[in-house]
Simulated scan of single mutants.
Amino acid sequence: MSEQKKYLYSGLTFYLLPEIVEKLSGENYTEYLDEEFYGPLGANSLTYRPLEKFMLSDITPTEHDFLFRNSPIHGVVHDEGAIMMNGISANAGLFSNANDLAKLMQMYLNKGSYAGKRYISEATVEEFTRYQFPENKNRRGLGFDKLAFGERTVDSNAAPGASALSYGHTGFTGTMVWMDPETKLLYVFLSNRVLPTRENTRLYQLNTRTKIQQALYDSMEQNH
């Protein structure tokens, strides 16, 4: 809205999306997701508020939060904004195992289809996964992260071997998913670096996620 079109990070849109989906679909947000996406994909562990479906012992604990909630966090979303939305928000709070998350991401990698069923049009996937405002040095897509501009190293947000077409997401708690249409590589890294505290930054310092991802690219190159 300012005169200078400069990129600023904001998650505001994602707090509003559930209500928008409900108004457009006429259905409850989570029921709509289950009926239209997660159920047909066979991704049954993808869910908000996982304690309604699973035992506490099946859910990975997260941070010992003695600032905001004054208790260890287990079975509910870690993100402070999402918990104020009762655990259902588009900015955070979606729980899953790696296999089911891969099904959803493979659907994106397939440009909107999975197992013979189309969920999203190819044009929509291509629009959301392209650089939106590269002239302003904004590397983001729409809802997806993209490769950082310039020379890439293992310090970058994705492996140096990833193509310019690739896209994904890196989460605050250490999760990373990355799809590469050029090589068809789908990379899912589930982590919980904030247990017991968010002060644990070794995952970033060691570049663990991008090093593993690059090892996959190297292996594909060797076996090509």
Results as ranks from 00 to 15, higher is better:
residue 76 V to Q: 06
residue 116 G to K: 04
residue 78 H to L: 03
residue 34 D to Q: 09
residue 61 P to E: 03
residue 36 E to M: 09
residue 162 A to I: 03
residue 125 V to H: 01
residue 19 E to Q: 15
residue 24 L to T: 14
residue 203 L to G: 11
residue 201 T to L: 13
residue 169 H to A: 15
residue 136 N to A: 15
residue 27 E to G: 02
residue 41 L to Q: 05
residue 217 Y to I: 06
residue 210 T to C: 08
residue 158 A to F: 10
residue 163 S to W: 05
residue 38 Y to V: 01
residue 221 E to H: 07
residue 109 L to H: 01
residue 1 M to L: 08
residue 186 L to K: 02
residue 163 S to I: 01
residue 141 G to I: 09
residue 168 G to P: 08
residue 35 E to C: 08
residue 87 G to E: 00
residue 115 A to N: 14
residue 139 R to W: 02
residue 4 Q to M: 12
residue 8 L to I: 09
residue 78 H to M: 09
residue 12 L to P: 03
residue 13 T to V: 11
residue 37 F to V: 10
residue 163 S to T: 10
residue 216 L to G: 03
residue 23 K to T: 15
residue 162 A to N: 06
residue 212 I to Y: 10
residue 73 I to R: 01
residue 167 Y to A: 04
residue 86 N to T: 09
residue 73 I to P: 04
residue 64 H to Y: 13
residue 101 L to F: 10
residue 71 S to I: 06
residue 148 A to C: 12
residue 30 T to K: 04
residue 43 A to G: 04
residue 162 A to T: 10
residue 57 S to Y: 12
residue 211 K to N: 06
residue 209 R to F: 02
residue 35 E to H: 13
residue 93 G to R: 00
residue 17 L to F: 10
residue 108 Y to E: 06
residue 7 Y to D: 07
residue 195 L to I: 14
residue 49 R to Q: 13
residue 127 E to Y: 15
residue 6 K to S: 15
residue 202 R to C: 09
residue 38 Y to T: 11
residue 128 F to Q: 07
residue 199 E to L: 06
residue 32 Y to K: 11
residue 75 G to P: 05
residue 106 Q to P: 01
residue 88 I to R: 10
residue 117 K to C: 07
residue 82 A to F: 08
residue 97 N to W: 05
residue 7 Y to H: 14
residue 200 N to P: 03
residue 125 V to Y: 00
residue 120 I to R: 07
residue 31 E to F: 03
residue 3 E to I: 13
residue 14 F to R: 07
residue 18 P to H: 07
residue 179 M to G: 04
residue 23 K to N: 12
residue 8 L to P: 08
residue 161 G to S: 14
residue 210 T to N: 03
residue 100 D to Y: 02
residue 30 T to W: 04
residue 64 H to K: 13
residue 79 D to P: 12
residue 21 V to E: 03
residue 44 N to W: 06
residue 58 D to R: 13
residue 204 Y to T: 08
residue 30 T to A: 06
residue 114 Y to K: 02
residue 53 K to I: 03
residue 150 G to S: 05
residue 180 D to Q: 12
residue 47 T to D: 05
residue 17 L to I: 13
residue 10 S to E: 06
residue 67 L to S: 06
residue 119 Y to K: 01
residue 150 G to K: 12
residue 79 D to A: 12
residue 20 I to L: 14
residue 107 M to R: 02
residue 199 E to K: 14
residue 24 L to A: 14
residue 112 G to C: 14
residue 123 A to G: 15
residue 55 M to L: 15
residue 138 N to E: 08
residue 46 L to I: 08
residue 127 E to I: 13
residue 121 S to Q: 12
residue 165 L to K: 05
residue 193 R to L: 03
residue 134 P to Y: 07
residue 15 Y to T: 10
residue 168 G to Q: 09
residue 45 S to V: 01
residue 164 A to I: 12
residue 107 M to H: 00
